[in-house]
Amino acid sequence: HIECVVCGDKSSGKHYGQFTCEGCKSFFKRSVRRNLTYTCRANRNCPIDQHHRNQCQYCRLKKCLKVGMRREAVQRG
C-alpha cells in the first residue's frame, strides 16, 4: 500500500496533490478552508508521524505544505 507522505499512515489516495491518509486530508482541508493559524509550543520541528500527528497542528500543517500539498487545490466551502 501507499503511505501518507505526511504521517506515514495508510494513504487513501491522492488529495490536494499528494498521497495522504483521510486524517491528514481532512486536517489540511479544514486548516485551509477556515484559514487557521497555529502556533508551535516547541521548536517548530515536532515529529509528525502516525502516533504524533495530532500533537502539534503547526508542524503538521508545515509538513503538509513541505511535502507539496497545495492550498489552491482545496475548494472553498
Score class of each variant (00 low, 15 high):
35 N>Y: 03
33 R>F: 03
29 K>D: 14
17 G>L: 04
9 D>S: 10
25 K>L: 10
41 R>S: 15
69 M>G: 02
60 R>N: 04
8 G>S: 13
19 F>P: 14
64 C>P: 02
77 G>F: 05
6 V>W: 03
36 L>H: 13
50 Q>L: 09
23 G>L: 03
65 L>K: 04
20 T>P: 04
9 D>W: 07
13 G>L: 04
58 Y>I: 00
12 S>D: 15
76 R>Q: 13
15 H>W: 15
63 K>A: 05
52 H>T: 09
68 G>I: 03
40 C>F: 04
38 Y>F: 08
72 E>H: 03
70 R>W: 07
11 S>F: 13
2 I>C: 06
30 R>C: 13
54 N>H: 08
57 Q>Y: 15
4 C>Y: 00
41 R>V: 14
25 K>P: 03
45 N>V: 09
77 G>I: 10
32 V>S: 04
32 V>C: 01
30 R>S: 07
23 G>T: 11
51 H>Y: 08
38 Y>K: 01
55 Q>Y: 10
16 Y>F: 15
49 D>G: 08
23 G>A: 07
19 F>H: 10
22 E>R: 03
48 I>D: 05
65 L>H: 14
44 R>P: 04
74 V>Y: 04
38 Y>Q: 03
60 R>L: 15
34 R>L: 07
48 I>V: 14
18 Q>G: 09
64 C>K: 00
5 V>R: 15
52 H>Q: 13
27 F>G: 01
71 R>G: 09
2 I>E: 04
2 I>F: 00
35 N>P: 04
10 K>H: 05
41 R>Q: 12
68 G>A: 02
46 C>P: 03
60 R>A: 08
39 T>G: 08
39 T>N: 14
31 S>C: 13
57 Q>G: 13
37 T>G: 13
10 K>P: 12
24 C>T: 00
14 K>E: 15
23 G>R: 09
60 R>I: 06
28 F>V: 01
31 S>E: 04
45 N>E: 10
60 R>Q: 15
58 Y>M: 05
18 Q>N: 04
73 A>P: 08
43 N>M: 06
24 C>N: 02
75 Q>F: 10
19 F>C: 06
34 R>S: 06
18 Q>I: 09
61 L>F: 09
49 D>I: 06
40 C>S: 00
72 E>P: 04
77 G>T: 11
63 K>D: 00
5 V>L: 15
68 G>V: 02
42 A>Y: 14
47 P>V: 11
21 C>L: 00
37 T>V: 12
40 C>K: 04
77 G>M: 11
34 R>C: 01
4 C>E: 00
3 E>C: 09
12 S>N: 11
24 C>M: 00
24 C>W: 02
27 F>V: 02
77 G>A: 14
16 Y>N: 03
70 R>S: 14
73 A>N: 13
33 R>A: 14
6 V>I: 09
59 C>V: 02
39 T>S: 14
38 Y>A: 04
21 C>A: 02
37 T>H: 14
26 S>H: 07
68 G>D: 02
11 S>Y: 15
34 R>W: 05
75 Q>Y: 06
58 Y>N: 03
48 I>E: 06
16 Y>K: 06
69 M>Y: 01
10 K>G: 08
56 C>R: 00
59 C>E: 02
58 Y>K: 04
66 K>E: 12
19 F>A: 08
34 R>T: 05
50 Q>N: 11
53 R>L: 09
9 D>R: 11
71 R>Y: 13
41 R>C: 12
46 C>S: 02
75 Q>V: 10
25 K>W: 11
70 R>C: 09
10 K>T: 12
61 L>D: 01
27 F>E: 03
75 Q>R: 07
68 G>W: 02
37 T>E: 15
75 Q>K: 09
55 Q>P: 08
27 F>R: 03
72 E>G: 05
64 C>E: 01
49 D>T: 07
38 Y>L: 08
9 D>A: 07
17 G>S: 06
63 K>S: 03
66 K>Y: 10
11 S>G: 09
72 E>D: 11
43 N>T: 09
48 I>P: 01
62 K>C: 05
1 H>Q: 14
27 F>N: 06
62 K>N: 14
44 R>D: 13
46 C>R: 02
43 N>E: 15
77 G>Q: 15
49 D>P: 05
57 Q>E: 15
20 T>V: 14
65 L>S: 03
6 V>P: 02
1 H>D: 15
18 Q>D: 13
2 I>R: 04
5 V>F: 15
57 Q>F: 10
9 D>T: 10
28 F>M: 03
10 K>Q: 12
13 G>E: 13
26 S>P: 01
50 Q>H: 11
47 P>F: 10
33 R>W: 13
57 Q>D: 12
14 K>M: 11
24 C>E: 00
5 V>H: 15
25 K>R: 13
22 E>S: 09
50 Q>A: 13
55 Q>T: 08
76 R>Y: 12
49 D>W: 07
76 R>K: 13
27 F>C: 00
36 L>G: 07
44 R>Q: 10
76 R>V: 11
30 R>V: 13
29 K>R: 07
4 C>A: 00
49 D>M: 07
35 N>E: 14
60 R>S: 03
17 G>V: 04
19 F>T: 08
44 R>S: 10
36 L>K: 14
65 L>A: 06
35 N>V: 08
1 H>P: 06
3 E>W: 05
66 K>P: 01
58 Y>W: 10
36 L>C: 06
76 R>W: 11
52 H>L: 07
22 E>D: 10
35 N>H: 05
40 C>Y: 02
3 E>N: 06
53 R>F: 03
62 K>Y: 03
69 M>K: 00
60 R>W: 14
22 E>Q: 15
8 G>V: 01
40 C>G: 02
43 N>F: 06
2 I>N: 12
1 H>V: 10
32 V>I: 08
23 G>D: 15
7 C>T: 00
51 H>F: 06
69 M>V: 02
55 Q>N: 09
44 R>W: 09
67 V>W: 05
61 L>Y: 07
51 H>V: 09
8 G>R: 11
62 K>Q: 11
45 N>T: 14
44 R>I: 12
40 C>E: 02
40 C>Q: 01
31 S>D: 00
8 G>C: 06
43 N>Q: 12
62 K>T: 12
37 T>A: 13
11 S>E: 05
8 G>K: 14
69 M>F: 03
61 L>M: 13
11 S>K: 11
53 R>Q: 14
45 N>G: 11
66 K>L: 10
14 K>L: 14
32 V>K: 07
33 R>P: 01
68 G>M: 02
24 C>K: 02
61 L>I: 07
12 S>G: 12
